[in-house]
Every structure is written in structure tokens, then in C-alpha cells.
Amino acid sequence: MAKQDADRTTLDLFADERRPGRPRTNPLPRQAQLRLNKRNQLRRDRERGLKRIELKVDERLFSKLNVLADERRLSRAELIQTLLLQQLEQLESK
């Protein structure tokens, strides 16, 4: 039986064949890349003086924040920071 180039059902015939695709550019496995990227992101945030706050909100509020952030062309984090600063300024002025 002859090898048909279009036949992909017998994978052992094509085990040594190079498939086209994007070449591997990073020697690390994906999980290691993610850990390294997260570590670098945390380092950049720390250098910029940023602190992390986690906040759980209901789905309706989350949707409203997303819409408002899109309207103002801000990220959700920037919008929340702006709203918090405005509220704090109002409280301090009373």
C-alpha cells in the first residue's frame, strides 16, 4: 500500500513530518511563561506604587461599570479608582 499525502488517518506515517505553523519563540513551557509574566507584572505594579484590592460585586453593578468605563474610554480599574477618589473628596469636604 502506497503512502498517500492527503491521508491523515495513519499518523505513524507522518510522525517525522514537520507541520506548518508558528515557530516556537520561547523555550519555557506555557505554565512557566505565565508565572514569569505575572511576576513581572506584579513587579511593575509595585514600582508604580500600585496596591491590589479585590472587590466582589453583583452582576448588574459589574455590567454598569463596564458600560460606564466603555463610555468614558477607561479601563474598569481606572473608572473604579476615579469613582473612589471622587467619593473620598466629597467625604473630606463635608
Rank of each mutant, 00 (worst) to 15 (best):
1 M>A: 11
2 A>Y: 15
3 K>C: 09
3 K>W: 07
6 A>P: 00
6 A>D: 09
6 A>N: 07
6 A>C: 03
7 D>C: 05
8 R>C: 01
8 R>W: 10
9 T>P: 02
9 T>R: 13
10 T>M: 14
10 T>Y: 14
11 L>R: 05
11 L>W: 06
11 L>I: 09
12 D>R: 13
13 L>D: 12
15 A>L: 13
16 D>E: 14
16 D>K: 10
17 E>D: 13
18 R>S: 14
19 R>G: 12
19 R>H: 14
20 P>V: 07
20 P>S: 10
20 P>W: 05
21 G>V: 03
23 P>Q: 13
23 P>G: 14
23 P>E: 13
23 P>H: 12
24 R>S: 05
25 T>H: 14
26 N>V: 05
26 N>S: 06
27 P>N: 15
27 P>W: 09
27 P>C: 10
28 L>C: 02
28 L>H: 05
28 L>I: 01
29 P>V: 07
29 P>K: 10
31 Q>S: 12
31 Q>R: 14
32 A>H: 10
32 A>C: 08
32 A>Q: 13
33 Q>V: 08
33 Q>K: 03
34 L>R: 00
34 L>H: 04
34 L>W: 00
34 L>P: 02
34 L>N: 02
36 L>T: 04
36 L>Y: 06
37 N>A: 15
37 N>V: 12
37 N>G: 08
37 N>I: 12
38 K>Y: 01
39 R>F: 04
40 N>V: 07
41 Q>I: 00
42 L>N: 02
42 L>S: 01
44 R>S: 03
44 R>Q: 01
45 D>G: 08
45 D>I: 07
46 R>K: 06
48 R>V: 00
48 R>K: 11
49 G>I: 06
49 G>S: 04
49 G>M: 09
52 R>I: 14
54 E>W: 06
54 E>L: 07
55 L>C: 12
56 K>C: 05
56 K>V: 07
57 V>N: 05
57 V>A: 06
57 V>F: 03
58 D>L: 07
59 E>G: 05
59 E>V: 13
61 L>F: 09
61 L>D: 09
62 F>K: 12
63 S>Y: 13
64 K>F: 08
65 L>S: 06
66 N>Y: 14
66 N>G: 15
66 N>R: 15
66 N>C: 14
67 V>Q: 14
68 L>I: 07
68 L>R: 04
69 A>M: 02
69 A>Q: 01
70 D>R: 12
70 D>L: 11
70 D>N: 13
70 D>M: 13
71 E>L: 09
71 E>F: 09
71 E>P: 00
71 E>H: 08
72 R>W: 10
74 L>S: 04
75 S>Y: 04
75 S>T: 13
76 R>K: 09
76 R>L: 06
77 A>R: 10
77 A>F: 02
77 A>S: 13
77 A>K: 07
78 E>P: 00
79 L>N: 02
79 L>W: 02
80 I>R: 00
80 I>L: 04
80 I>F: 03
80 I>W: 00
81 Q>K: 09
81 Q>E: 11
82 T>E: 07
82 T>G: 02
82 T>M: 03
82 T>W: 01
83 L>Y: 02
83 L>K: 01
84 L>Y: 03
84 L>N: 01
84 L>K: 02
85 L>C: 01
86 Q>I: 08
86 Q>K: 11
87 Q>G: 06
89 E>S: 09
89 E>L: 09
90 Q>R: 03
90 Q>L: 00
90 Q>K: 00
91 L>D: 12
91 L>E: 13
92 E>L: 11
92 E>M: 12
94 K>I: 09
